[in-house]
Simulated assay, not measured.
Amino acid sequence: MPLKFVLRPNEKVIINGAVIGAGDRPGSFFLYNTANFLRGREVLKEEQIDSIEKKLYFVIQLVYIFPEDATLNLQRFASILDETRQARPDAAKTLGEIERLVEARNYYRALKLCRKMFKSGDGGTGDGGSADGGTGDDDDAPANDRMP
Rank of each mutant, 00 (worst) to 15 (best):
M1N: 08
K4W: 08
P9K: 03
V13Q: 02
I14T: 02
I14E: 02
I15Q: 00
I15M: 04
G23N: 01
G23H: 01
D24S: 13
F29T: 01
F37E: 00
G40I: 01
R41P: 07
K45G: 03
E46D: 07
E47C: 09
I49H: 07
D50T: 06
E53C: 10
K54G: 07
L56M: 11
Y57S: 08
Y57L: 07
F58L: 05
I60H: 11
Y64A: 05
I65G: 00
E68V: 13
D69G: 10
D69V: 09
D69E: 14
T71A: 14
F77L: 05
A78G: 12
S79T: 14
I80T: 05
L81F: 14
A87F: 05
A87S: 09
P89M: 07
D90E: 10
G96E: 04
E97K: 11
E99R: 10
E99W: 06
L101D: 06
L101T: 01
V102Y: 11
Y108I: 08
Y108K: 14
R109D: 06
A110S: 09
L111M: 12
K116I: 14
K119E: 04
T125A: 02
G126E: 02
G128N: 12
S130F: 06
G133K: 01
G133S: 09
G134Y: 05
T135H: 05
T135M: 06
G136K: 07
G136V: 00
D137W: 05
D139A: 03
D140H: 04
A141V: 05
A143Y: 00
A143R: 02
D145M: 07
